[in-house]
């Protein structure tokens, strides 16, 4: 779990004073021990156990069923992210800079943004069927909204005194967008992608559950139903790890493209 450390580096440091290795080890041992004991004593076959997961981890992760499922989900998520984030960011820029467009779209954006994307899946299955198209569309929509909202915030958040600077220097409109608006919106845009990644993975799993199409979600579901809890949990771990890695990536990207900005959080 070293990826975790890099993910929320600053905040995690504030959480854990250095030199608490012993405490951490004790906490992990206690947690895993209680889990193992509870799993094997009260709910054998119904609850994954740490030992079970460890024994099953390698065989599970190398099985062809798992690899196919992983490929399916990752492919759909990547496609959906591109289809959602690119127009989402563009829409965000427009919404942020054009007043009437923002007012026109506000009810839709805020209504959809607040809504759990899960709740849209039943409608999506009616419209697009129980297939990969539905999955990609739900992922894209899940990604579109945070990108649009965050980028719009960024495009609006140009500090007032910078606007004055542009006016005093007589910067032409095109250059203003290029030199002032885009740089200040950029970190927000990446922060939007950051949130989008998490939502996309959740959206993918949800559609796979409901529509029963091949993917990591279905892999987890089938294993959980056939009393292969440890295999199912391995799937959960991989899904969590994907989210963590992707977010670590976007966080690094934010620092890269906007070293002057503090890291955003979701």
């Amino acid at each position: 779990m070293t990826a975790l450390a890099s993910r929320r580096n600053s905040r995690e440091k504030s959480f854990a004073p250095p030199g608490d290795l012993l405490g951490k080890v004790v906490a992990v041992v206690v947690l895993l021990g209680v889990w193992q004991a509870a799993g094997s004593a009260f709910l054998p076959d119904y609850l994954p156990t740490p030992l079970g997961v460890i024994t099953e981890l390698i065989p599970t992760l190398t099985s062809s069923a798992f690899l196919t499922a992983l490929g399916e989900t990752v492919g759909a998520v990547l496609l959906g992210l591109v289809l959602g984030c690119v127009p989402g960011t563009a829409a965000g820029l427009l919404i942020g800079r054009v007043g009437w467009l923002r007012q026109l779209s506000t009810p839709y954006i805020s209504g959809l943004y607040a809504m759990p994307m899960l709740a849209i899946v039943p409608m999506a299955t009616i419209w697009f069927g129980y297939n990969n198209l539905t999955r990609v569309i739900v992922i894209a929509l899940s990604a579109f909204l945070p990108c649009a909202v965050s980028t719009a915030d960024g495009a609006r958040s140009l500090p007032a005194n910078l606007g004055d600077v542009a006016r005093v220097l007589n910067v032409p409109r095109g250059r203003f967008v290029l030199d002032f608006v885009l740089p200040s919106a950029l970190p927000f845009a990446v922060a939007g992608v950051h949130i989008a990644v998490g939502r996309a993975l959740v959206g993918a799993a949800a559609v796979e559950f409901l529509a029963n199409i091949d993917g990591l979600g279905t892999f987890i579901l089938t294993n959980a139903r056939s009393f292969a809890q440890n295999q199912a949990f391995a799937g959960v771990l991989v899904l969590a790890l994907l989210g963590v890695l992707a977010r670590a990536g976007t966080e690094r990207l934010i620092r890269r493209v906007a070293p002057w900005q503090q890291t955003h959080q979701d």
Binding site: A205, F209, G217, I220, L221, A224, R225, A232, V236, A240
Partner: peptide, 9 residues
């Protein structure tokens, strides 16, 4: 850990 994924478990 995504809670959706935990639901079946």
């Amino acid at each position: 850990v995504p809670i959706v994924a935990l639901a079946p478990l």
